[in-house]
C-alpha cells in the first residue's frame, strides 16, 4: 500500500512536468494534424460539430496535460496564422481543454462509458466558460455556427442578457461537440497498440 502511495505521487509529479521530451515534441505536431483531419471530416460530412480537438484529447491522454495544453495552444496559433486569424484568441480555450482532459484521464475519468460522459460535460463547461468572454469581445457574443447564432439572436431579441445568451449559444454547441469527441477519443485510445501507449508514457 505504501509503495502504491509513492507511485501515485511520482506520477502526479510527472503529470505536471514542464520539461518537454523529444517524444512529446514530435507527438504535438501529430496531435495538431489529427485535429485538422478531424475538423476536415466534420466539415466534409456536414456534421453540426467541430471535432477539432480530437488530437488534443489524444495528446493529453498519451503524454499528460502539459502536452495536451501545448497541442491545443499551438493548434490555434498555427490555425490562426494560416487559416483564420481570429481563432488565435481561442488558444486559451484549447489550453484549458488540454489540461482538463489530461487531469481527468490521469484520475481515471476516461475508464468507462459512464465516466466519459461526466468528463465530457466538465470539459464542455470549461470550454464554454472560457470561450464566452472571447465571443463577446470579438463577435459580440456569436459563435459563427448558424443555428447556435439563431438561438443567440432570439435570446437577445427577447432582451435576455448578452452574457447568458452567448453562454447558452456556446454551451449548447460545446456539449454536443465535446461529448462526441470524448467518446471518439475514448474509443480510439483503446484501439491504440500497447507499445505506442508505453512509448509515450516512458518518454515523457
Amino acid at each position: 500500500m505504501k509503495e502504491n502511495g509513492i507511485d501515485t505521487k511520482a506520477s502526479r509529479f510527472n503529470m505536471w512536468k514542464l520539461h518537454l521530451s523529444v517524444a512529446t515534441v514530435t507527438l504535438i505536431p501529430a496531435a495538431v494534424g489529427i485535429n485538422y483531419v478531424a475538423k476536415a471530416f466534420a466539415e466534409g460530412l456536414k456534421l453540426p460539430l467541430w471535432l477539432g480537438s480530437l488530437g488534443t484529447y489524444l495528446a493529453s491522454m498519451l503524454a499528460g496535460p502539459t502536452a495536451g495544453a501545448i497541442s491545443g495552444f499551438i493548434n490555434n496559433i498555427i490555425y490562426g496564422l494560416t487559416l483564420s486569424p481570429v481563432s488565435t484568441v481561442y488558444s486559451i480555450t484549447s489550453i484549458a481543454i488540454g489540461i482538463v482532459v489530461g487531469v481527468l484521464f490521469n484520475r481515471g475519468w476516461f475508464s468507462n462509458v459512464k465516466r466519459v460522459f461526466v468528463s465530457a460535460i466538465l470539459i464542455a463547461l470549461t470550454s464554454a466558460i472560457i470561450s464566452t468572454p472571447l465571443n463577446v469581445i470579438f463577435w459580440g457574443g456569436q459563435t459563427g455556427i448558424p443555428w447556435g447564432d439563431a438561438l443567440f439572436a432570439t435570446m437577445i431579441g427577447n432582451h435576455i442578457n448578452i452574457w447568458i445568451a452567448s453562454f447558452t449559444d456556446e454551451f449548447v454547441l460545446d456539449i454536443m461537440d465535446k461529448v462526441v469527441v470524448a467518446y471518439l477519443a475514448f474509443f480510439i485510445y483503446r484501439q491504440l497498440p500497447q507499445r505506442m501507449i508505453n512509448y509515450f508514457k516512458d518518454n515523457q
Binding site: T26, A30, I34, V37, A38, F41, I188, L192
Partner: peptide, 18 residues
C-alpha cells in the same frame, strides 16, 4: 475505419521521428 488507421500511422511516424 478511416480515422483509426490514419491516427495510428501518424503516431507511429512521431515515434520514429522522435
Amino acid at each position: 475505419p478511416i480515422l483509426i488507421p490514419l491516427i495510428i500511422k501518424t503516431f507511429d511516424q512521431s515515434i520514429n521521428r522522435s
